[in-house]
């Protein structure tokens, strides 16, 4: 499925971003598709920001947008389009990859060890080529992959995605958070011998060996 819209976390707010090049009815359709799949994620009564909506949309289109959002208990507001400039670029990248890459639009890659006190926050997935040391924090909207030892705090699916996972060559994290589920390490933690992956199973964070390819 081609995706021409996306919801993006900007300074703690969710923004709806879409291209002007596509038909507005298509935008509405895709918003609906997203809301159906991830109603939990958006919650009820939340405000969605739509950059430059007042300028870009006709009165009628604005009313249609209100109607779609209100079905799911969401509100929207028009904000100044500071975040608008990079949008077309993002969307072209996305449209090119859209065929096989739906879930992970972007990934933040960190090519060093995260030391205590350092913090990485991303709306997308995060890959660390190095260790995450005690006292370091990673907060990602998507998955977290650590190609090294993960001893700090990792929070995947921070915007509420309960299907996010945390994977590490040596998963020794003091605390793992996925969406709204928090789990801490056992007080006696043995060094794992193989890569492990953490995900939510039946409402709790489960850690299992990560050798076999992930089924989604």
């Amino acid at each position: 499925m081609r995706q021409e819209i996306m919801f993006k976390g900007v300074r703690g707010n969710l923004q709806l971003i879409f291209s002007d090049n596509i038909d507005f009815s298509e935008v509405l359709h895709q918003i609906r598709t997203k809301l159906v799949v991830a109603a939990d994620f958006f919650g009820v009564g939340n405000m969605i920001q739509v950059p430059m909506a007042k300028q870009r949309l006709t009165q009628e289109e604005q009313a249609q947008l209100t109607a779609v959002f209100s079905e799911y208990g969401l509100l929207w507001e028009s904000v100044d389009g500071a975040a608008q400039a990079p949008v077309p670029e993002q969307l072209t990248i996305q449209a090119d990859q859209a065929e096989d890459d739906v879930g992970a639009p972007q990934t933040l890659i960190i090519e060093k060890t995260l030391r205590g006190g350092q913090k990485v926050v991303s709306d997308y997935s995060v890959v660390v080529f190095g260790d995450v040391n005690p006292g370091a924090e990673i907060i990602a909207g998507g998955d977290i992959i650590v190609l090294g030892a993960c001893r700090g705090m990792a929070h995947a699916g921070a915007h509420g995605n309960r299907r996010a996972t945390i994977k590490a060559d040596r998963l020794l994290a003091s605390q793992l958070r996925i969406a709204d589920v928090i789990s801490r390490s056992p007080d006696q933690l043995n060094d794992p011998e193989h890569p492990e992956i953490a995900r939510i199973v039946d409402g709790i964070v489960m850690i299992e060996p990560a050798e076999q390819p992930l089924e989604n």
């Binding site: 060093k112 995260l114 030391r115 205590g116 006190g117 350092q118 040391n133 005690p134 006292g135 370091a136």
Partner: peptide
Amino acid sequence: RDADRIIGLLE
């Protein structure tokens, strides 16, 4: 722990 933090700050 503190040494690790310092290494990060030096970096």
